[in-house]
């Protein structure tokens, strides 16, 4: 048996290395799926929440939209207002005891993280939409686009670019917070670490390794997302055509019918 701290660290890595790796893999899978699915949920929610009906819409459509908006508000408030660890318990054991559904822990994990992320991103996406000039929506309306078309073709592409830093932040939060899913026995990094630590009663050494792994994960993701962000906002240099000395943009007149 090792006698020093680093001796123990080396020993535990050799003994449980693949456990840490598998745990890290599950953590990344949950965080990745949860962030992407949560983001998709929230984009959909944002489209509904920003919808305005035209003057000619009947009472049925008005009522349906109002009901949908109310339900989405409830969803956002409830999932933002309760801890994810509690949501995991409620979903997993609720499904089991009241619906008779023995859903796999991983399925419950995906569901909880996605839905939770969706609720958190509500305000982020709303902020992103507000950051897009109102004239963009008016112009889309003025060329005959529906609300859905204007949102998907014009508004959200611009909003998403603006909120990429916050989405990356949410991804990092998910990598870390998915650790609470150990309460429903999801074999993510924290759960694996706890198992490894128990065997030799070496909690400090194991969780030292665990924290290094978490940090490597979040740091890598942050750097990668920075690259994606730069891609989305386009190159730093571009040609400005609108100068007085640039002549090709002459107006051909007269306009033929």
């Amino acid at each position: 048996m090792p006698t020093t701290f680093f001796g123990w660290v080396a020993f535990l890595i050799a003994r449980y290395g693949d456990l840490f790796l598998r745990g890290a893999g599950v953590t990344m899978l949950i965080a990745g799926v949860g962030t992407v699915a949560g983001f998709a949920i929230e984009l959909g929610v944002a489209i509904v929440r920003t919808a305005r009906l035209s003057a000619g819409a009947g009472p049925l459509r008005r009522g349906a939209l109002a009901a949908a908006k109310a339900m989405l508000s409830v969803y956002i408030e409830v999932f933002r207002g309760t801890p994810m660890i509690v949501q995991a318990m409620v979903v997993y054991y609720g499904a089991l005891e009241y619906l008779g559904l023995d859903i796999p822990a991983m399925a419950a994990a995906f569901l909880v993280v996605s839905v939770n992320t969706g609720a958190y991103m509500a305000e982020i996406v709303r902020g992103g939409i507000l950051s897009v000039d109102a004239g963009q929506k008016e112009a889309a309306t003025a060329v005959g686009m529906t609300h859905w078309q204007a949102m998907t073709a014009v508004i959200l592409p611009q909003a998403v670019r603006n909120i990429m830093p916050s989405v990356g932040n949410e991804f990092v939060v998910n990598i870390k917070d998915s650790s609470v899913l150990n309460v429903i026995s999801v074999t993510e990094l924290y759960f694996m670490s706890k198992s490894a630590a128990g065997t030799y009663w070496k909690y400090f050494e194991v969780f030292f390794i665990t924290s290094v792994v978490y940090f490597v994960l979040t740091f890598t993701v942050t750097r990668l997302l920075r690259l994606v962000e730069r891609r989305l906002s386009g190159g730093d240099s571009y040609t400005v055509y609108g100068s007085q000395s640039h002549t090709p943009a002459e107006i051909k007149v007269p306009l033929a019918p």
Binding site: D133, T141, G144, Q158
Partner: peptide, 17 residues
């Protein structure tokens, strides 16, 4: 309506994306 009655804005409002 919007296809038949078009509009040009003071701030252009070209789709930036």
């Amino acid at each position: 309506l919007h296809a038949r009655v078009g509009m040009v804005f003071q701030q252009f409002n070209l789709f930036e994306n």
